[in-house]
Design a protein around this nucleic acid. Structure first.
Length: 475
RNA sequence: GGCGGGAUAGCCAAGUGGUAAGGCACGGCUCUGCAAAAGCUGCAUCGUCGGUUCGAUUCCGACUCUCGCCUCCA
């Protein structure tokens, strides 16, 4: 079964076929962060989605080159650099580091290439020159360079590939009033922004005069430089369809005359507690905020991965608590398998073959190949967990079966990226208490045993009895 | 105003023209000294109104509500 993905260009689910004639190499570009602040949970949904796309491609056997840009020059950045009386590099460096730390905490695979806009000024300038030479860009009286949509369309190019555009019906008035630049047409967008006093020392020389790149041009310049003039996949949040991605297409195809990207994938936004996230509503969370509330990045990743990427997802704190329980169910099952694999169960008399332990990786692969149906994939996982638990109860899992099941899980998890729970080592004080409880139990002093159990719970540890002894788990 | 998504149990969320996956929460049973974990088990006719059909939650239309883009935005 082949991988199928929803291509915004076609507005439909299509079978994925890479540009590579050998059908092996895949170029993947995802619009990265603009580093002016800590990324919020909505941003993370998109990056976790991108990670799932990459992992699914790799799981399907493709050799993926994953590129994610870091936008380190932009209006808001300049404004904040000025407000904070710092330097561009220092300011953006801080948030880039935080971003990459969080990305790692969420177990997102690191992109192979992370180009910075400020390191691609030369490529950006040469791309703009190409557009000017082809007559689809012009220099305005204010010194900025704009992309002319009319000229572009005049060349027979199609502007509006990702969505239906109707300029007559658009709220053009608002655009004009909010725009301070001297464009020929309201729909035109800046490729190069002329230096203004507020920019301070943040500018670069260019054949068009001192200034800085516009917002969209960096992605065209960097993606084509790293992945070629035509590449396979370009991802981003749904809000980027227009104008950002549409403008990227125009700039790129306007310069090269070649198709820019074969498949465009867009991730939907999320709501938090049923409402649009906003700082004033108090439902605006960064990953750090959630960690401070006692949740783990692993739980956040799981929760972000419970819904289909094209559906608006309602992210809630209750949902995170539920994620903790759901993960514990998986961890519990894996822990039992590890115990069996490690110690064996000599009393097991069953003559089952490994084939009786259900396969997981195939069913998950099939679910994900259907336009990343992650919800169905989790259903596969939990059905597997129940089957395995049942076999364990029935004493039908031998060490070799457990090893086999764990291997199957490991392969499956290479695409889910949930990983193992960081099993906390109990401190000696806790172990001593647990031992005291065991002694009390032996003496049939259950009152004391229960009191110790409550004490352990108050200290954040749960003690479970089993035929093989006690087990301590961190709450 | 233009364009595009949604509305499925207490919550989150898949899916299908033939009476609805999975997770969380909740109830019952088994196991347990009691728990926990685990197993078994119970819990929805899919926003409203029409239409097509032998039959619709699934297709079509209308309506209501809701979210997004059109302006910086994941």
């Amino acid at each position: 079964m082949a991988l199928k993905l929803f291509n915004t260009l076609a507005r439909s689910v299509q079978e994925f076929a890479p540009l590579d004639p050998a059908g092996k190499k895949v170029g993947l570009y995802c619009c990265g962060p603009t580093v002016y602040d800590f990324a919020h949970i909505g941003n993370w949904r998109t990056f976790v989605f991108a990670d799932l796309v990459r992992r699914t491609l790799e799981f399907s056997g493709y050799d993926v080159k994953h590129v994610m840009n870091i936008t380190d020059i932009e209006d808001k950045i300049i404004q904040r650099v000025r407000e904070n009386k710092t330097t561009l590099r220092e300011f953006t460096g801080k948030f880039e580091t935080a971003f990459l730390d969080d990305l790692k905490a969420l177990n997102c695979k690191e992109p192979h290439v992370k180009p910075h806009a400020t390191e691609y000024i030369a490529e950006i300038i040469s791309l703009i020159e190409k557009l000017v030479a082809r007559g689809v860009a012009y220099k305005a009286p204010d010194g900025s360079v704009y992309f002319s949509i009319a000229k572009y369309q005049g060349c027979g190019c199609h502007y509006g590939q990702l969505l239906k555009l109707n300029f007559d019906e658009m709220r053009a008035g608002e655009r004009v009033s909010s725009d301070e630049y001297e464009k020929e047409s309201v729909a035109d967008f800046a490729l190069w922004k002329a230096r203004v006093p507020d920019d301070g020392d943040i500018f670069w020389p260019s054949p068009f005069g001192e200034g800085r790149p516009g917002w969209h041009i960096e992605c065209s310049a960097m993606s084509m430089k790293v992945l070629g003039e035509s590449f396979d996949l370009h991802l981003g949040g749904e809000d980027l369809k227009f104008p950002h991605h549409e403008d990227e297409i125009a700039q790129s195809e306007g310069a090269t005359g070649k198709p820019f990207v074969k498949y465009w994938l867009h991730g939907a936004h999320l709501l938090v507690e049923g409402k649009k996230m906003s700082k004033s509503l108090g439902n605006y969370f960064t990953l750090r905020d959630l960690v401070a509330k006692g949740f783990t990045a692993r739980e956040v990743r799981y929760l972000l991965l419970t819904a289909h990427y094209r559906e608006t997802f309602n992210f809630t704190l209750d949902g995170l608590t539920g994620a903790k329980s759901a993960l514990a169910r998986i961890d519990e099952c894996l822990g039992k398998l590890r115990d069996i694999a490690a110690h064996g169960r000599p009393e097991s008399q069953s003559q089952i073959t490994p084939g009786e332990v259900p396969f997981l990786k195939e069913s998950v692969a099939i679910s994900l190949q259907d336009d990343l149906n992650i919800s169905a994939a989790w259903a596969n996982v939990f059905e597997w967990v129940r089957s395995v638990n049942r076999l364990i109860v029935e004493n039908k899992i031998k060490p070799e079966h457990a090893l086999y099941a764990l291997k199957d899980w490991e392969t499956t998890d290479s695409v889910l990226g949930i990983g193992a729970n960081a099993a906390a080592e109990a401190p000696t004080e806790i172990i001593a208490l647990a031992d005291a409880r065991t002694e009390a139990k032996k003496a049939k002093d259950f009152k004391r045993a229960d009191a110790i159990r409550d004490e352990l719970k108050a200290k954040g540890w749960v003690v479970e009895d089993s035929p093989k002894g006690i087990k301590l788990k961190k709450l």
